Amino acid sequence: VTLFVALYDYEARTEDDLSAHKGEKFQILNSSEGDWWEARSLTTGETGYIPSNYVAPV
C-alpha cells in the first residue's frame, strides 16, 4: 500500500477530482497518469484524482 499525506488543501474542480484537506492520508491507486494521481481517501473512502504535487509520502 502506497500512502501519501496532503500537504495543502485542494478543492475538487471536476467530478473526477477528489478534494483533500491538509494532513489527510491517501492510498495511491494509480500514479501513471502524470501530474494527477488516482487516490482513495483513508478518511472518507472516496476515490478520485488529486494533484501529485499536493501530497508527499508518509
Rank of each mutant, 00 (worst) to 15 (best):
N53F: 12
S32I: 10
R13M: 11
R13G: 08
I50H: 02
G45R: 04
A56H: 08
S32P: 10
T2F: 12
S32T: 12
T43P: 01
I50G: 01
E24A: 02
R13T: 11
S52I: 07
E24T: 03
W36Q: 07
S19T: 10
Y49F: 12
E11W: 10
S31A: 13
L42F: 06
V1N: 12
L7K: 05
E11V: 13
Q27S: 07
S32W: 09
L18H: 02
E24M: 04
P51W: 09
P57F: 07
A56I: 12
Y10S: 01
Y8D: 07
Y54H: 08
G45D: 04
G48L: 05
N30K: 09
P57C: 08
D9Q: 06
T14D: 12
E46G: 07
D17K: 13
F4N: 01
S19P: 11
E24R: 02
S52G: 07
R13K: 12
E24S: 03
G23F: 04
E33N: 15
P51C: 12
E24K: 02
E24Q: 05
I28D: 00
P57S: 06
T14M: 10
Y54C: 14
S31W: 13
F4C: 09
A56Q: 09
S41G: 01
D9A: 08
T2R: 13
T14Y: 14
Y8F: 12
V58S: 07
Q27A: 10
L18P: 01
S41H: 03
V55G: 02
E24P: 01
S31T: 13
E38Q: 13
F4P: 00
D35H: 11
H21F: 15
K22D: 01
T47R: 11
S52T: 06
G23Y: 05
S31N: 12
E33I: 11
Y54D: 00
L42K: 03
T43E: 14
E46A: 13
T47M: 08
H21C: 12
V5F: 10
T2E: 10
W36F: 12
F26L: 08
N53H: 13
D17P: 01
R13Y: 07
T43K: 10
S41Y: 03
L3V: 14
F26W: 04
L29Q: 04
P57R: 07
Y49K: 13
G23V: 01
Y54G: 06
A20D: 00
L7S: 01
A39P: 00
G23M: 03
W37K: 01
G23P: 00
E33F: 12
N30R: 08
D9W: 06
D16Q: 14
V58M: 11
L7T: 04
Y8A: 09
Y10R: 04
I50Q: 01
K22P: 05
V1T: 12
W36Y: 13
L7I: 11
S52C: 14
V5R: 03
G23K: 01
T14A: 11
G45P: 00
T2S: 11
S52H: 07
G34L: 10
A39K: 01
E33C: 15
D17N: 09
V55P: 00
L18Q: 02
Y8I: 06
A56R: 09
R13P: 07
I50P: 01
A56C: 12
L29H: 04
K22C: 09
L42S: 03
D16T: 15
H21N: 08
T2I: 13
V55S: 00
T2D: 10
P51V: 03
S52M: 09
N30Y: 08
T43V: 11
R40D: 00
T44W: 03
S19K: 06
